[in-house]
Structures are given as structure tokens and as C-alpha cells.
Computed example of a mutant assay.
Amino acid sequence: MPGGRLTQQDRQRIAAGLTDGLSYAEIARRLDRSTSTISREIARNGGPRDYQPQQAHGATLQRARRGPPAPPRAARVPGGTVEEEIIELAVRSGLPRMTARVHVDLLLSEHGRRTAAELTRRLTVSPASVSVAVNFLVQQGYVRRERDPQRRRDIYVVDDDAWYHSIVISSRQTLESAQAAMAAAETLGLDTPVGQRLAKVGTFLERVTEDVTESADRWRALLA
């Protein structure tokens, strides 16, 4: 993975990429950097609309003279840390808390990848808890599993394309529910109140799923 600090020329190329409407991933590819590096650089220096390369470079030099910035886990926002806020949002959306903690820790990691041992140590939980959480995330497409043949261990990865796969998997599950509802409607009879209700639900879920899948396919290039 490419490393090193961004130069002033790098920042000028970032600004040019934003002006041209390039995605963060494409800018990162052209600079041979990680997408997370580009995302952090832009976010801490005004965002995509107000990013100015000279000011960004000067601010970075000032931060370097003051010492290293606080890690993401200590970044304060109203009500708690950034990490805690994202976890709470995930829990409110229906994700189990342990699973949310694992997912967020992966999301906020430098390169979006950790081993099971690293997750266990960082979250101070049992290996079994991490295993259950990771298996769920893999099944839902939020995380993928890589094998490290040299150390014979699994590495869990959150990459940009994970969001596409999670939507596709969710849509597939919703489509299965739609098909089950329509099958039940035919069994019970389309001329019965229950059959008509299930047929409407099945048709609605089927049409919505088709729209979501088509939209995900259409905009997938943004993650490239």
C-alpha cells in the first residue's frame, strides 16, 4: 500500500480532480494512494466544495509542528466520540451492538482491514463474539474475507465495493420475501382478502427491489 505524506503537488492534483468531478477513488488511483487517505485529506480541509490545496498544505505543516493529531477514537462530537455516534446509528437501524462495533472499527481503520485477533484486542471482547459478528457482516456483504496464506489467518476487509454487494444481497433477500408473499397469495386464493393483501405486498416489494438493484448497478461506477 502506498504511503508517505501528501505533497503540495499531490494536493493540487486533488483540487484539480475535485474540479473535474472525479470520485475520491479515482483521485486516489491517479495519485497511487488509498481512498481513505484522499477522503480524510478533503474532509479535514474544507470538504469537496471548499478544498484549497495551498491552505491544506499549510494547515498540515502547522499540525505537524504541533504534533500528531488525536486518533479517530478520540474525536469528540456532541454526545460522544465519532465512533460511538456511528455505532448508535447502526444499532438504531437494527444492527446488533457487537456487530456494529466490529463494523465501525473496520470502517474507521486506516486501510479498512483487520484480523480477528486485532478486532478481539481492540474491542476487548472474546474471539467468539468477533466471529459471530464478522460472519454476519460477511453474509450481508458488508465485509469480505481474505486469507493470508503465509500466516494462515483470515483478514476481514471493508472496501468501497462492499456497499454495492450489501445492497444486492439485501435486495435479493427482499425479493425472496416478495416471491413468498405472492406464492402464499396464490395458495390462499387471489379472490380472498388475505390473498389480495399478500399479492399487493409481494408486487410492491418486487417493484421496489427491481428499482433498488437497477439504481445500484447504475451508480456502481462511483465506487470504482
Rank of each mutant, 00 (worst) to 15 (best):
Gly3Asp: 06
Gly4Glu: 00
Thr7Gln: 05
Gln12Tyr: 02
Ile14Arg: 00
Ala15Asn: 09
Ala16His: 13
Thr19Pro: 00
Glu26Met: 13
Ala28Thr: 08
Arg33Trp: 07
Ser34Tyr: 06
Thr35Cys: 06
Ser36Glu: 10
Ser36Leu: 02
Ala43Arg: 14
Asn45Tyr: 06
Arg49Tyr: 01
Gln52Glu: 15
Gln54Glu: 12
Gln55Trp: 02
Ala56Ile: 00
Gly58Tyr: 00
Arg63Met: 00
Arg65Gln: 06
Arg65Asn: 02
Ala74Thr: 11
Arg76Cys: 01
Gly79Lys: 09
Thr81Leu: 01
Glu83Asn: 04
Leu95Ile: 14
Thr99Ser: 11
Ala100Ser: 12
Val104Glu: 01
Glu110Ala: 15
Arg114Lys: 14
Arg114His: 07
Thr115Leu: 04
Ala117Gly: 09
Glu118Met: 06
Thr120Arg: 08
Arg121Gln: 14
Leu123Ser: 13
Ser131Leu: 09
Ala133Lys: 00
Val134Tyr: 00
Phe136Ile: 14
Gly141Cys: 12
Gly141Asp: 11
Glu146Asp: 12
Glu146Phe: 07
Arg151His: 10
Arg152Gln: 15
Asp154Lys: 08
Ile155Ser: 01
Asp160Gly: 06
Asp161Cys: 00
Trp163Pro: 03
Trp163Phe: 14
Trp163Met: 13
Tyr164Ser: 09
His165Thr: 11
Ile167Ser: 10
Ile169Ser: 07
Arg172Ala: 13
Gln173Tyr: 11
Thr174His: 12
Glu176Asn: 08
Ala181Trp: 02
Ala185His: 11
Glu186Pro: 02
Val194Ala: 12
Gly195Phe: 01
Ala199Pro: 08
Ala199Cys: 11
Gly202Ile: 09
Thr213Glu: 04
Glu214Thr: 13
Asp217Lys: 13
Arg218Trp: 10
Trp219Asn: 12
